[in-house]
Structures are given as structure tokens and as C-alpha cells.
Design a protein around this nucleic acid. Sequence first.
DNA 1: CCACAAAAAGTGAACGTTCACTATTTCTCC
DNA 2: GGAGAAATAGTGAACGTTCACTTTTTGTGG
Lengths: 339, 339
Amino acid sequence: MSTSGTPRRPTIMEVARLAGVSHQTVSRYLRSEGGLKESTRERVGAAVRELGYRPNLIARSMRTRRTGRLAVLLPGLGSFSPDRMLVGAIAAARAAGFAVEVQSVDGGSGARAERVLELADSGQVEGILSLAPVVHEGDRMPAGEVPVVVCAGYDDQMRGIGELADGSVVADLVAGLAAVGHRRFLHVSGSLRFASARGRKETFLRTVERLGLESHGVVDGDWSAESGRDAVRSLAEDSGVTAVIAANDVVAAGVVRGALERGWGVPDDLSVTGWDNNPVGAYLSPALTTVDVDRERLGRDAMERLVASVRGAEPALSDGPLNRIVWRESTGPVPPRSR
Amino acid sequence: MSTSGTPRRPTIMEVARLAGVSHQTVSRYLRSEGGLKESTRERVGAAVRELGYRPNLIARSMRTRRTGRLAVLLPGLGSFSPDRMLVGAIAAARAAGFAVEVQSVDGGSGARAERVLELADSGQVEGILSLAPVVHEGDRMPAGEVPVVVCAGYDDQMRGIGELADGSVVADLVAGLAAVGHRRFLHVSGSLRFASARGRKETFLRTVERLGLESHGVVDGDWSAESGRDAVRSLAEDSGVTAVIAANDVVAAGVVRGALERGWGVPDDLSVTGWDNNPVGAYLSPALTTVDVDRERLGRDAMERLVASVRGAEPALSDGPLNRIVWRESTGPVPPRSR
DNA sequence: CCACAAAAAGTGAACGTTCACTATTTCTCC
DNA sequence: GGAGAAATAGTGAACGTTCACTTTTTGTGG
């Protein structure tokens, strides 16, 4: 316990005095700018350590007009759960030397657009990453200064990462089922306000066409189990559908339930796939075939794009598989007599 | 598009000039400090609007030595998923006028303790909320200046909120099962580094004792399905256990699986309860009895404690039920012949 | 109408750093 | 060893706000 009231933190000036140099030299030392004689560097370093000096980042921000802070926007409500993505995004930001300010915005993509503008305008952050859709009305785009990256959003910016990667796996899913005889498919999509939902839907349709299969169509859902259950309920008895690609595991759980309620066996009469690898899905009966997504990497990649954009550089995106199909019991060969 | 390069933002000085007052008067206006003549207030307001002036919060921070920012620490890895809590915490912080900086820390509680110290020391945040355990080695507690609240942590600070509330529901769960005849219970806990896991365990033991029931003991798990499955596997044939309280839904799914594998019916031979209300749990067979937790409120309450602590006030915590038992198919009356 | 108090407004410095210069020291080469 | 260049170090101002005062204006009672 020190005896004085508040033990004011030492400043660059005090370090300079102790080291016997000018404050500017200390400043250079702190920015590790080079151009310091070895002996000087050591003296300053010793002074810094002796005083326990730590730079005042706010004062620095004030002078440099850079905050070293990026904002991440989270959807406030709803089933979309960005946890792992957030962790990945934060890790990437930290690795790049940025702090992350997180905001969560209730309401739809319009509300988020408002917040994006507000943030861009505040001068508090150097870039903005939104993990949910953002729609800008008319010309009210954010001022040119602050880059914005939207993940799972309307913007096309993520197309190179999320959508295509997503897509290829939907294609694999369909192809894998086709390989065991399935010909007629149904897709229950997620909320189409999400790029991920749109991407999966489009890829589904493209793949079915490309492989010469039949689509019984797409039911536009909302990521809920109920939407999956309803989709199966409203299927005609003679629809001929033998495989359902659900938007995620929760929807798939609803599809399975709906099928069982109609007396259809899964996978004996109907194969069902999910998405997300919800740990509980492995314990459904039948255990759910699903897609394990490296959400952390998804967030990391998005953040890397943002950082690159802030710095005016090219993003260095990671490679390797982002999604991995986990085949389990809810999928199987097509039934002998197609229903 | 303006013709100049960067359209520097207007400062308080320019507002003052336009309004024909001193910069100090503008400053007073901005802080809505009162003591301004109505006519003056209007003139300044008009100038602010005309210039589109927005205060430079960094400059303000520099002078006031307050950042208006709180930090939230997230566990980097592991099954613990703080998403809804984070959303709640952020909402509460925003309502109180604070921005939130989120950090995620890989590694154990020791690593988090390091980060807490680093943050407390940085002068960048006025308070720290950790959503995962933090253990301080020896005397290296954070400097007195910056309040720290640990949610789901070793600290006793949350006891009034999380643990007791949790506890009461475990008691209800056990009592509910006892009411339909169960006498001998097993608890599969979560990782005991989490206060929530410890709280549920303690309450389980206390309740069993209080109601004059029998505990077959507690298996210390790690929130994983495997730990639940193992717990059931290693149960003696004649253990007499008819009800298992699992730490969460994933563990419960493992317990159910383990029971079915041994040929025990759920709930005919064994009742199983989970925790978290994982949406997929409703579609397990049997559908999982679980506890629906208002995680958002959990986060909000924790943040409210932090804000109160920063301001030296008493926290205004919300009331109403935090947890709600959802009875489903995985629980039922005790089997006629107790195994 | 004046003395005095209270209210309103103004003045200059300070917060802790970096920027844009200038001054000094050190090195290199003939 | 000395001129010139390069490396190193120093000086003062500036970033945009609020703090701690001081000055001016307005209001009040005798």
C-alpha cells in the first residue's frame, strides 16, 4: 500500500528524466522505431522497468488518431448463435494488435445498419465486423473512412469465404446421398436473410440440377425445429422424396420428428441431414448426420478480411477444410421401393 | 464528396466560434451541466447541429481519465458457450452508458488471471467481468482501482445470484423426482472449476440429505457426453439408482445413451435430467427433461453488479425466475420394482 | 441607483503522447 | 584530421477536451 492517495502512473517524461534522455527518445523506444544506440535503448528500458511504466494508450490514440480498436456487431436475439465465431474473430483481431469492442443490437438488419453508421461516425473504431445481416437503406452507406465487413450478410463481401465453402459441402452432401441411390430431394432452408441460408439453398438447387437429380423444391424456413416438422407434415404421401437437407441440426431434428410422426422410418424411408454438429445431435435416434463447421475459423477469416481492409492490404486467409461432413445414422441408402 | 482530402471533424472550438461563445460554454452544453441561459443553449445547439459536431470521446477520456469502457473475458475454448450471457451483459453495459471490450483467453483460469491483471493495469477499462473461472495465484490480485466480477468463477461474488438460484432449481428437480417415488440418486457434475458446477453439486447433496433420500454419490465430470455415458456404464447392476441429475443436456444425452446401451429403459428404469434446454434435446427419444436458463439475464445481472461496483453503488438486480424446469419424457415415476 | 451576491460565461493550462522540425554526435572517406 | 553525410538525440507544438480559476453579466434589497 502506498501512502499517497492515487499513485499516479509515471509518464514518458519521468522515464526520460530517469534515463537521462529526452521524452522523444523514450517515445521512439516505445514505438521500437529503431535508430537508437544500443546503450540508450538499454538505459531507457531499465528506466521503464524500474518505474513500471506503461504507455497511456488513450493519449497515444489522441495524438495518432488511431484507436487500435475494431467493433463486432452481434445479433441481439434469435437462434443464431455466434459464440465460436466471435472467439475466432477476437483471436484474429488480437493477433493483429487490435482490441475488439462488441455491440449487440436487438432488432433486424435495419437496426444494425443504424448502429454501423453510428459506430463508423463515432471515430471510436477503425473497422466494423458484423456477424449478422446488415441492410443499408438507400444511400446511407457508412462513410468511406471506416471499412465494414459483413459476415453472413447481404453484402457480397463474404462470397469468397463463407458461401462458396458452405456451398461445396452442400454439394458433397447431395452427392453422397445420390451415390447411395437417392434421386428426389427436399431442402428446408434457414432464414433467407442470412447469406449462409441463401448460399446453401442456391448450392442445393445447382447441385441437384448438375447431377441430374430431382428437387421437390425448397421450403423456406427460419432455422426452427417447427419449420422442419411442418415441411415434412405438408409433404404429399406420394411425393417421392427420400432425402431432406435441413438448414441446421435443429431443423433436422424437427424433420426427423415429423417423419417419425407420419410413420416413416429414418433413414429407412427418409434420409435427413443437419448442419452445425450440435453435440446433442449425436444422441438423437437416429444419430444425426451433420456438417461440422469450424466456426472459429469462420470468424477468424472474417476478421482477417477486416484487418486487411483497415490496413489496405490483402487478407491472408487460412486454408484447409472449413466444413466436414459427419455421416451418422440419419442417412442411409434409398429405400428399395421409392415411396 | 468533399473536395478536400480528409474532412477533419469539427471541434468544440469551431462550434464555439459559430455560436459566438467560448469553448468552455460549448463544453458545458455537451455535458449538459446546466447553468446555461436558455438563449445560449439554443445557439450552441444550433451550431452543433449545423456543423454535425460529435465530441471526440478519446480527447474526453484523456482529460477525464475515464474511458467508459468495461472488459468482458470469455473462455477461449471448451464446451462452455457464453453467447447469450454475453448478449445480456453487453445490453446491461450499454444501458449504463458503457462500451464493452471483449477478450477471449485460451488456456485455463491461470491464463485468465494474467489477462485480468494486464487489463486492470492497462488503464483502458474501468471494470472487468469474467464469464469463466479466474484463479489468482498468491497475492497477485488486481490492483484496487479496477473492480472485477467473476461469473461462474471461484470467487464468491456471484453466490447471491448464480449459485443460489441454480441451487434452488436442482432442489426442485430432486424434489420433483422424489415426489414420484425416486429414492436413490446419482449426480454427474460438470467441471468443478466452474462455480455453477460446484453449486449444483452442493445443492444436490444438500437436498438429498434434507429430503432424507439416498445419494449414490457424485461423478465429477467435465460437461461432456462421454462423462455421462461412463458414469452410467460404471454403475453396478444392483446400485438401486433410479434417477440421474446430469450437469447439462450434453451430459444427459450421454447418460441416456449409456442407459439404453445397458438395456435400461428411460424413463422406465432410469429417469434423467439435463440442463440448458438445448433445442435438440426436445427431439431426443426420450425428449429430455431439462432446465431452461435465462442466460441473458445471468449475464445482465453480472454486468449490473460490475457497473454498480464501478460506480460505488448497490446493484439493482432483476427478480423473477431465472431457471425453469421443463419436464419432458426422460423423467417419470420410479419403476415398480426398484432395480 | 448602488452595493453585493449569484448566475453565466470566459481564459489559460493541463492531460500524455507523437509529429515535424532542428541540433548534435558519430561515421566515412579522402 | 577534416568535410560532409548519416545516424542519433532533442525541442516545442499540437491533438480536443475538461479543470480550476477569473471575469462579466444579471438579479436583488435597501
